[in-house]
């Protein structure tokens, strides 16, 4: 399984905080996004936002990234703390 986490405004836009996705054919971050959009076509707007950031196992990743069983993948908007 891959644990998927949505945070902040993205979580509100999608109406989902987290979900578990079977690894199946998912090998990369791009595969995961494709899978999520196939499952929930209404997510395409929010999930296609080019400003979204991604993290795998609590580390930022840029571009595509290889995923493995047990990974935690997070999607979130630009950060605004401090």
């Amino acid at each position: 399984m891959i644990r998927v986490v949505f945070l902040a405004q993205l979580r509100e836009q999608l109406g989902a905080a987290e979900l578990d996705v079977p690894v199946g054919q998912i090998k990369t971050l791009a595969d995961l996004k494709t899978y999520l959009l196939l499952q929930n076509s209404s997510w395409s707007g929010a999930l296609s936002n080019p400003k979204l950031l991604s993290a795998v196992n609590h580390a930022y990743v840029k571009g595509d990234h290889v995923l493995a069983d047990g990974d935690e993948v997070a999607f979130f908007p630009p950060v605004t703390g401090g």
């Binding site: 902040a8 405004q9 930022y60 979130f76 908007p77 950060v79 605004t80 703390g81 401090g82």
Partner: peptide
Amino acid sequence: LMDFLKTQAPFWKK
């Protein structure tokens, strides 16, 4: 530290 915290640390304000 503040500059990096503001752009890297995963906090969000509503």
